[in-house]
Design a protein around this nucleic acid. Structure first.
Lengths: 246, 246
DNA sequence: GGCTTGGGTTGATCCATGTCAACCGCAAAT
DNA sequence: ATTTGCGGTTGACATGGATCAACCCAAGCC
């Protein structure tokens, strides 16, 4: 089932997978390519695939041979330790890439699971490498995407290493808000696709702590929260909360 | 090869900066290149630079235009938040690359500081991109390095998000030990280049907690520690400590 | 309708780690 | 040789978040 916030109204007529007519172009790989280059990229990204809510896009330990661009929907990635501990390493939305972690070992190193019915474009990695040997801007853009992923991870490390529970949650909400905004949605109102437990796992907190922090934010008038429905009432307040560290 | 020798009065013998005769080859970028390809890489990596203990190799916010390979020595990278909080995001040793975080924004996003007198090779990034458009294996290897950096960061996120203090320190020691081993040093005995505070910052702990964990490990016979000198006595013990989570 | 189930909230209590403080010891500076 | 200072260790105490437990609510199913 699709929520009212689904990025694309489902297009029944055209199912040709083409970057050239994808409205996520600006957020995804094809950024900055010429028309002709775009067409070559289209050839590469031939497969589009649906992943239903709860299904794996890929599993840790399986062979890596493609990266994936999210066309619509919402994913989480997680890592499992031998002793059963699990951590969510990220939440990904339309226009973002999945699978970069598999390049190094040629095996996926995490699980990617759809949090709502989603659609992805499959990008065979060796062909992406070939093409980016020919198209300089594609190559450069791909490097930037990988680098930004590293920077994002450093941000999470910072969050996990130095912030307290409420700061972490505030940072999380502001980040989501900003990413929704970049996709043309309201920055102030959205539905969370993940459970409290998944948020907690990502933020290094227990679900009860996440729940309490949500309640606290509501009491203090920063947000209105009802289950998965969030309205941000005071962005400045949330930001302030992050900076004025005890 | 245009290395200025005036800056290196100590080295009387000619030390040509060349990947082709660098004994770190197997750990660094040139992995898997043919002899001829290696020579082309040599041309690219023309500058070698010394960075004294305590000096910055680069600073957050400054322009990015090269990545750096550590030839010898030891570095830390850290990120500063506006409110003064700081976190060490990594420790790097010989053969490892620094600066990948700068590609995305064309600005460095962290500080890289030498923890001992070090020597680095400067690799102009745009030239690396050019060359990797021509040398497939170089391109692929570079992508692997970036990907592994992402995976490494996920490991740290896991550590920060799910492990308790002693588990974190055990993981840290085992990781160091393994990296020293890969460089031909003893896996069991080494000097820490960083302070307790830096370790703590990296592991999301206070220096006192790090110190106590070291003492505890010593009491239990897992290690012998005297200031910065570490001897690992029971690798299995440390590993067990990480898995048998409460 | 009532039952079941998974997610969410809230309260009471516990404990790992942070905080504050004293002290030690080595090495550089004088 | 003495002083100074930084890094490290250790102890006493405080606290944020985990844990355990009860309960609520909405959705799906009989």
């Amino acid at each position: 089932m699709t929520t009212s916030h689904s990025l694309h109204p489902i297009n029944l007529s055209v199912i040709k997978t083409a970057c050239s007519n994808c409205n996520l172009r600006e957020l995804c790989l094809p950024l900055g390519l010429t028309h002709e280059e775009l067409e070559r990229l289209d050839d590469l990204i031939s497969t589009r695939r649906r992943v239903k809510r709860g299904e794996h896009l890929y599993r840790s330990g399986t062979a890596f041979d493609a990266i994936y661009a999210i066309r619509s929907g919402f994913f989480k990635t997680d890592v499992l330790l031998e002793d059963g501990r699990e951590q969510v390493t990220g939440f990904q939305m339309a226009g973002e890439l999945l699978g970069l972690d598999g390049i190094g070992t040629e095996l996926h190193t995490c699980n990617a699971i759809a949090l709502e019915d989603s659609e992805i474009c499959s990008i065979p990695f060796s062909r992406l490498e070939s093409l980016s040997r020919e198209i300089h801007t594609l190559q450069h853009h791909f490097h930037k995407v990988m680098s930004r992923e590293i920077v994002r991870d450093h941000g999470v490390m910072m969050l996990l290493g130095t912030m307290r529970a409420e700061e972490r949650l505030a940072a999380f909400l502001l980040n989501l808000s900003q990413r929704f905004t970049a996709r043309g949605f309201s920055h102030a109102e959205f539905y969370l696709r993940m459970t409290r437990e998944e948020i907690g796992s990502y933020l290094g907190l227990k679900l009860e702590t996440v729940s309490r922090a949500f309640s606290k934010f509501q009491e203090e008038g920063f947000i209105a929260v009802q289950q998965k429905h969030i309205r941000i009432l005071d962005v400045a307040g949330l930001k302030a909360l992050m900076n004025h560290h005890a």
